[in-house]
Write a protein that binds this DNA or RNA. Structure first.
Lengths: 147, 147
DNA sequence: TCCACTTATATGCAATTGCATCTAGTGTGC
DNA sequence: GCACACTAGATGCAATTGCATATAAGTGGA
């Protein structure tokens, strides 16, 4: 267990700070617009991308890095609003399969313009295209997809 | 209101993901070690850095990007444990001045090794020194100190 | 001085999160 | 076919967060 160098500590500190600031902007804009929180969008997007086969909750959990009980309740709320549908899994008696509904799709579409503008304000406005790409690449190192 | 480019959206998405992963590591390590959550450390560090004059809650709030009511209660908890002391402000009848106690200092020192190891695991282990520096610089652009 | 406005902090209450644990299936070795 | 360890998901309860608003004090004029 090596001690982190100053530059690593600094990177971590900035990561926290930048994330907090950007998230506050994004969540704030969504709320102002009377829209649901960001997590709803993420679920809807994942489900929309998954297409017809849908997704198992545990897959969504990995994709979103959410705690299991948190996701379970997030789905409760989305289901209560009619944005997603739960169905028993054919293959696995313990599990379910989630699918986005038409209403869910509509909600995702409605959120996007506000969300997009917020991303631009919180991130895009501060970086050149080259910097944005570089930042994305570096951050990806911290959590490589398919790690 | 321009739409964000793909690279900007990607940077934002990775920011969320990287932050969530790193934070989970850090908070997890603290909990395993029976230590309080990260926010406690941040407050204690800021107060220790502030030295004798202490800090007003609103200053801490800006430094930590915390919501006002959240900080108010965080201080409640820290005070209840004897880690910080509240005193009425001399200059401003509405306000208070916060100071870290000896117990608070001890707690901060106790947290640091665990926290440091977690930062190294969550961030340092994935980046070269050059990359860490580059990441810190880019993130700083998103929330420039003294903006 | 008085008033309207702003700033600093606290707080009641509802929603969300975290923790620990529960239930119900699955799979494996025998 | 059984015992056992493991995975998927839900849930009761406590802690935290978010929201709206309250209280109290500072500030800048008319």
């Amino acid at each position: 267990m090596t001690a982190p160098s100053d530059s690593v500590v600094r990177a971590w500190t900035r990561l926290e700070r930048a994330h907090r600031a950007a998230l506050a902007t994004v969540e704030g804009r969504l709320k102002e617009a009377g829209l649901p929180p960001l997590a709803w969008y993420d679920v809807l997007l994942e489900l929309e991308r998954a297409g017809a086969p849908g997704l198992r909750p545990f897959e969504l959990q990995k994709a979103m890095l959410l705690a299991q009980y948190n996701l379970s309740r997030l789905i409760d709320r989305l289901e209560a609003q009619g944005h997603v549908a739960r169905a028993a899994s054919e293959d696995d008696g313990r599990g379910q399969v989630l699918a986005i509904t038409a209403k869910g799709r509509a909600m995702r579409r409605k959120i996007w313009p506000v969300y997009a503008a917020a991303i631009e304000a919180a991130v895009g406005a501060h970086l050149s295209p080259t910097e944005a790409r570089a930042l994305g690449d570096l951050l990806e190192r911290l959590y490589p997809p398919r790690s």
